[in-house]
Design a protein around this nucleic acid. Sequence first.
DNA 1: AGGTTTTAAGACTCTTTAATCTTAATATAA
DNA 2: TTATATTAAGATTAAAGAGTCTTAAAACCT
Lengths: 150, 150
Amino acid sequence: MLLSKSCVYGLRASLYLAGHQSENYIPIRQMSDKLEISFHFLTKILQQLTSAGILESYKGPNGGVRLIRSGEDVTLMEVVLAIDGDYMLTQCALGLPGCGVMKPCPIHEKWAETRDKIRDMLESTTLTELAKKGKDLDLRITAEGGFEDL
Amino acid sequence: MLLSKSCVYGLRASLYLAGHQSENYIPIRQMSDKLEISFHFLTKILQQLTSAGILESYKGPNGGVRLIRSGEDVTLMEVVLAIDGDYMLTQCALGLPGCGVMKPCPIHEKWAETRDKIRDMLESTTLTELAKKGKDLDLRITAEGGFEDL
DNA sequence: AGGTTTTAAGACTCTTTAATCTTAATATAA
DNA sequence: TTATATTAAGATTAAAGAGTCTTAAAACCT
């Protein structure tokens, strides 16, 4: 699997936040209900995004989480790095340690090109861009229903 | 991780076979020693490639496995599909069931483009091509040492 | 036939990831 | 200041992936 489940959940939650952007904090419970993700599991994932400086959280009534910066600035890459790390973007296709231009494996070159495509996509796509697209076209970030139901 | 460990081992073993192509069967023990992969684990992986019609095996003295067709014909895609399946190439980036042009998620379009790049690379690369490159440049398919040591 | 070499197959264990549960800490508000 | 709402953190359980071990089956050789 390209992205871990944690990472996929993190992306969906981030898109949710980008689509509900306001000054207010959004309770995790609300997100876990809407997105149908286990509350406690989602909480831990969002903690990773918080400590990575992507979200900020607030406890108590009317607390929750929200994007620190506008979703305009936040790329998919940031979310992926915060949760899955850079493993996917650095690891050799044959799993060999230290694979690179100095000590390549036979697949290295082609693989590096392919990886760069993935990297470019993740770096050039922002949360706001996708959330806007989701709203405009009523696309979904949950199994059933569209963006409007969120 | 993009490819499972089983898949990576399968690729390395397939490259080994492509680099030793002959009429003879290659014992799995020899491969597991050279490639530093657990014998029993490698055996299971090669069984998958055998039942997928990529390898054929023979028991008893002078037995082992070999590529059914020339490595010229075998693409990386075939090996990946036999071991990891098409999950990576079909799965939605947000993990939503049935994501496609009819019911897309906001990332679907960009993701599909990126996935196609991966697909193209895997489909256009053959074992022989990589094994030849590995021999010519003495690249490695094991942590230490080059192709020549195999 | 009997012993040896090899793959095949299944049971088992270990590790990592995913998910849940419980308790603590923090903030609000009546 | 007490009750409530919320995130934080750690312990625990469940499931999947990775790896090992044992036994069986097939083929060869003497």
